[in-house]
Amino acid sequence: MSDDPVELDSRRGMAAQKATGLRRILADAEAHAAVLRERQLQIERELLDAPVTSWPEAAAKARYVLNLYYATLGAQDSHHRDLVASVLKDFARLDSES
Rank of each mutant, 00 (worst) to 15 (best):
residue 1 M to H: 06
residue 1 M to Y: 06
residue 3 D to K: 05
residue 4 D to C: 14
residue 5 P to Y: 00
residue 6 V to S: 05
residue 6 V to Q: 08
residue 7 E to A: 08
residue 7 E to V: 12
residue 8 L to V: 10
residue 9 D to I: 00
residue 9 D to R: 04
residue 10 S to V: 11
residue 10 S to L: 12
residue 12 R to W: 02
residue 12 R to D: 03
residue 14 M to H: 03
residue 14 M to V: 09
residue 15 A to V: 06
residue 17 Q to N: 00
residue 17 Q to F: 00
residue 18 K to V: 04
residue 18 K to A: 06
residue 18 K to N: 06
residue 19 A to C: 01
residue 20 T to N: 12
residue 20 T to C: 13
residue 21 G to D: 01
residue 23 R to L: 15
residue 24 R to F: 11
residue 25 I to V: 14
residue 25 I to T: 11
residue 27 A to V: 06
residue 28 D to N: 14
residue 28 D to L: 15
residue 30 E to R: 06
residue 30 E to Y: 00
residue 31 A to P: 07
residue 32 H to S: 10
residue 32 H to W: 06
residue 33 A to D: 08
residue 34 A to Y: 01
residue 35 V to D: 08
residue 35 V to Y: 01
residue 35 V to W: 01
residue 36 L to M: 02
residue 36 L to G: 00
residue 37 R to M: 07
residue 37 R to E: 11
residue 38 E to Q: 07
residue 39 R to W: 00
residue 40 Q to T: 03
residue 42 Q to V: 05
residue 43 I to D: 10
residue 43 I to R: 12
residue 44 E to W: 02
residue 45 R to E: 12
residue 45 R to H: 06
residue 46 E to V: 12
residue 46 E to L: 14
residue 46 E to K: 14
residue 46 E to S: 14
residue 47 L to H: 02
residue 47 L to T: 00
residue 47 L to D: 03
residue 48 L to T: 09
residue 48 L to A: 10
residue 49 D to S: 15
residue 49 D to H: 10
residue 50 A to K: 15
residue 50 A to N: 08
residue 50 A to G: 07
residue 50 A to E: 11
residue 51 P to S: 03
residue 51 P to M: 03
residue 52 V to D: 11
residue 52 V to T: 15
residue 53 T to S: 13
residue 55 W to N: 09
residue 57 E to K: 04
residue 57 E to V: 03
residue 57 E to N: 02
residue 58 A to T: 08
residue 59 A to R: 12
residue 59 A to F: 05
residue 59 A to H: 06
residue 60 A to M: 14
residue 63 R to G: 09
residue 63 R to Y: 10
residue 63 R to W: 06
residue 64 Y to A: 03
residue 65 V to R: 14
residue 65 V to T: 11
residue 67 N to T: 08
residue 68 L to W: 02
residue 68 L to Y: 00
residue 69 Y to H: 14
residue 69 Y to T: 09
residue 69 Y to G: 08
residue 70 Y to P: 15
residue 70 Y to G: 12
residue 70 Y to T: 15
residue 70 Y to W: 08
residue 71 A to P: 11
residue 71 A to Y: 07
residue 72 T to L: 13
residue 72 T to F: 03
residue 75 A to D: 13
residue 75 A to V: 09
residue 75 A to C: 11
residue 75 A to E: 13
residue 75 A to Q: 15
residue 77 D to T: 10
residue 77 D to L: 07
residue 77 D to K: 12
residue 78 S to R: 10
residue 80 H to S: 15
residue 80 H to T: 13
residue 82 D to G: 06
residue 82 D to A: 08
residue 83 L to M: 15
residue 83 L to F: 11
residue 83 L to K: 15
residue 83 L to E: 14
residue 84 V to A: 03
residue 85 A to P: 04
residue 86 S to M: 11
residue 86 S to N: 14
residue 87 V to L: 08
residue 88 L to P: 04
residue 88 L to H: 00
residue 88 L to A: 02
residue 89 K to M: 13
residue 89 K to Q: 14
residue 90 D to P: 09
residue 90 D to T: 10
residue 91 F to G: 00
residue 91 F to C: 00
residue 92 A to K: 09
residue 93 R to E: 14
residue 94 L to P: 07
residue 95 D to H: 13
residue 96 S to D: 04
residue 97 E to S: 13
residue 97 E to C: 05
residue 98 S to T: 12
